[in-house]
Computed example of a mutant assay.
Amino acid sequence: MTLYMLPLAIGPWQIALIVVVVLLLFGGKKIPELMRGLGSGIKEFKDASKEEDSSKEDKNE
């Protein structure tokens, strides 16, 4: 395994540890709210990038 791929080598114990830490930091009730906000942010980003692409196509024509 090369050095640049080392951070991507996450095993099941590391994932479990991350889940436990997130649960301890935010609590079980707060996590769905955080994921909903993250999802809406990603959707807004995709919409904005599509608008940018369409405006570039309009300028090229």
Rank of each mutant, 00 (worst) to 15 (best):
N60Y: 02
K59N: 13
G27Q: 02
L25K: 08
Q14N: 10
R36F: 05
R36T: 02
D58R: 14
G41D: 02
D58I: 12
S40M: 05
E51H: 03
R36G: 00
S54W: 05
G11D: 15
G11S: 12
I10A: 01
F26D: 03
E44Q: 10
V21F: 02
K30A: 02
Q14S: 12
A9S: 15
Y4G: 04
Y4K: 10
P7Q: 11
L38G: 03
Q14Y: 04
D58W: 11
E33A: 07
E52T: 03
K50I: 11
L6A: 12
A48K: 15
F45D: 02
A16H: 00
L3A: 13
K30T: 07
K59R: 15
G28M: 01
M35S: 14
P12D: 12
K59V: 01
I15K: 12
G41Y: 02
A9N: 13
M5E: 14
Y4Q: 10
W13V: 05
L34R: 14
R36Q: 05
L17C: 06
G27R: 01
V21A: 14
V20E: 06
L8Y: 09
G27N: 04
A9G: 09
E51P: 00
G41I: 08
M1R: 08
E44T: 09
K59I: 07
L38F: 09
K50H: 08
L17H: 02
L8H: 12
E61I: 03
L8T: 15
M1S: 14
L25Q: 10
M1F: 11
G28K: 01
K59C: 05
K30V: 03
E33C: 05
E57K: 10
M35W: 01
L34K: 13
Y4N: 10
F45W: 07
I31Q: 00
E52N: 12
D47W: 06
L25R: 09
K29D: 06
E61A: 10
D47P: 00
K46V: 11
E61G: 11
L3Q: 09
E52K: 08
F45L: 11
A16N: 05
L8R: 09
I18W: 12
M1A: 15
M35F: 07
E33G: 04
E61K: 15
L24E: 05
A9P: 00
K43L: 10
V22K: 08
G11I: 13
L6E: 14
G11F: 15
S55L: 10
G27L: 00
T2I: 13
L6Y: 10
V20F: 02
L34T: 05
L24V: 06
E44N: 12
E33V: 12
I31P: 00
G27D: 04
K43T: 15
D53S: 07
E52W: 04
P32V: 04
V21T: 07
G41C: 10
G37D: 06
L34Q: 11
K30Y: 04
F26A: 09
K29L: 13
K29A: 09
D53L: 06
